[in-house]
Structures are given as C-alpha cells and as structure tokens.
C-alpha cells in the first residue's frame, strides 16, 4: 500500500478529533447540569430570596433550555471565545492561559524525572532477569505504583520544606519571569507525580526489552559475535522505542489527571485547581474551558505519538 502524505494524515486525524471534542464537552456540560446544585443560588448571595434567584437565572440565561445553553457556549468557542466565569467575570481563556503553564511545568518535570530514572532501571532489570537487581527494581516499581501521590507529596513537604527548608511548600512562580524559581516551586509536585511514572516506565520497558532480547534475531546478533552492550543499546532500545513512546503518551494523560490532586496539596494555581473550583461552584464556563483545553492537549499528544511511531517504525500502518 502506498504511504499517504503526512499532511493528509494530520488533516484526517484532526477531522476525527472534532467529534471527540464535541462529545467530551457535551457530556461534561450535561453532567454539570444533571448534578444538583445551582450557581444561581451562589450568585444570589448570602441573603438570597426565591425572587432574586429567579431574577439571576434570567439575567445570566440560566433559565434557557439545556441545549440552547450548550449551543450558545459552542457558538462562542467556534469564534475563539471561551466566554467568562459566571461568578467573577474573568475571561476563561485568561484563567487557562495563566493556569496551564503551571500545570505543564509540573508534568514536564515529572516526565523528565520519570524517564531519567525509569529507563536505566528498566534496562538494568532486563539485562539480568530475576537477578537481585531485577528484584530490587520490581520492588521499587511496585512501591512506586502503589504509593498515592498526595501522600508522597505531604511526606515530601514535611521533609524538604518544613524540616530542611530546601524547597517551598506551596505555590507556583511564573516560568517566563524566573525559570529557576519556577522549577524550584515545581520540583516537589513534579517528584510526587514522577514516582508513578518512574515505576510505570521501568516495568513496561523491562517487559518490552525482555521480549526483544529473547527474540531470534537477537540470538543471531549474539551468534555474529556482537557485544551485549551493542546489542542492547543499538538494537534493543531501538526496537522498544515505539513502546516507550506509547508509554510516554499514556503517562502524559495520566500525569495531567494527577495534577488535580497534587495542585490542591501544593496550592498551585494550575488547570487542576481551576477545574475543581469551577466544578464546586457550578461555574460551567470554567469547567467547559478546562475540559476543552485538556481534550485538545490529549488529542495532540496522541497524534504526535502516532506520527513519531510511524516515523520510527515504517511497519506501523498509518
């Protein structure tokens, strides 16, 4: 079969992404309307009256049919407007623009840490399967998967912020204003999320490498007299790089989800805190805006992964 041009591939993938975005935002919107609790009551204030609440509903258009409200939101999005918070009037795009870099920095740090520690662990475990190194790696990986991120986060804060005073306990700094300060603030939350990633990378990589190393062509390479390290680094890792990319793309999604809890523990004003605040207050433009952003990010990550995989391994059908 002739290979399609990458441009066409990207185009068709983006078209496929549209229904996903529609479905995701529609479902979240429906959920927000289904759960009890009403932002009109919040908007009406401490001394609310029934009349005032009804008045608020009509001022903010909350009394319109469900589909009309969703349609109105969607119409604005199509024009590049994520609309405003019902409560505070801030542009949702502004809120997200401020929050997203904070979340992104944590995820990037977590990913770098997970790869830097997870890859060597996976490789050395696979070289001598069932040796004591392998068992140690398995143990560390099991612990890493099992430890709840928020618990690890609190332990890290107690030790490195409150006791040793090395790193800040809460908050975030803007990366563009002072990159080093920003990394200092994001380091502990990054580590808290990275633990799971490290474990996952080590385990998956070990499994994939074992499979490659036991294959027939590796035996042939041995027979040809290649050294173990050349087989491992030149042939082994090249063959598992597709697995690695897949792990990374899954991890990005998982880590984005993990930030919701971690951001609360560290009081980081990121996407996670934003969506929690929006959901609790039933401020649906905020929730919709964050969901929209996250869906776009996830789709983009998957698309890039697929393209990279195809570039590395031409056997993958596009």
């Amino acid at each position: 079969m002739a290979r399609r041009s990458p441009v066409k591939v990207i185009g068709s993938r983006l078209l496929q992404a549209l229904p996903v975005i529609l479905l995701a935002t529609f479902m979240v919107f429906a959920l927000l309307k289904l759960v009890p609790g009403d932002i009109a009551v919040t908007l009406a204030g401490d001394n609310a009256t029934d009349t005032r609440i009804a008045e608020i509903r009509s001022i903010y258009g909350l009394d319109r049919p469900f589909l009309v409200q969703y349609g109105a939101w969607l119409g604005k999005v199509a024009q590049g407007d994520l609309s405003q918070s019902l409560l505070t009037g801030e542009n949702v795009a502004t809120s997200i623009g401020r929050a997203f870099p904070n979340t992104l920095l944590i995820v990037v740090i977590a990913m770098v840490l997970a790869l830097v520690t997870g890859i060597p662990m996976g490789v050395i475990a696979a070289v001598k399967p069932n040796g004591w190194v392998d068992k140690l790696v398995s143990l560390i990986a099991s612990v890493g998967v099992a430890i709840p991120g928020f618990w690890l986060a609190m332990i890290l804060v107690a030790e490195f912020s409150l006791k040793l005073n090395w790193l800040p306990a809460t908050g975030a700094k803007s990366f563009s204003a002072s990159p080093i300060e920003a990394i200092r603030y994001a380091l502990l939350p990054g580590i808290a999320i990275a633990a799971y990633g490290m474990a996952e990378v080590a385990r998956q990589l070990r499994g994939a490498l074992l499979e490659v190393l036991s294959s027939q062509y590796v035996r042939t390479l041995h027979a040809k007299g290649l050294s173990m390290s050349r087989i491992l680094w030149q042939h082994g890792l090249k063959n598992v790089s597709v697995n690695l990319l897949t792990i990374i793309s899954l991890l990005v999604n998982r880590m984005l989800a993990a930030t919701v809890v971690i951001e609360a523990v560290f009081a980081i004003p990121g996407l996670g805190s934003l969506i929690v605040r929006g959901a609790i207050q039933r401020d649906f433009p905020i929730v919709q805006g964050v969901v929209f952003t996250v869906v776009v990010v996830v789709i983009a990550v998957n698309l890039i992964t697929d393209l990279l995989c195809a570039a590395i391994d031409p056997r993958i059908e596009q």
Binding site: V157, S161, L162, N165, P168, A169, T170, G171, A264, V265, F266, A267, P269, S273, V276, R277
Partner: peptide, 18 residues
C-alpha cells in the same frame, strides 16, 4: 492574599514562612 482553598496546605504555607 494567596488563595489556597485547601486549609491544611494554607496552614503549611504559614508554618513554612511563605
């Protein structure tokens, strides 16, 4: 004012001197 909804975290920010 730093807005920190998680009160335990907020209290930590005070003990840590932030």
């Amino acid at each position: 004012f730093s807005i920190i909804p998680e009160l335990t975290t907020g209290a930590r920010s005070v003990t840590a001197g932030q």
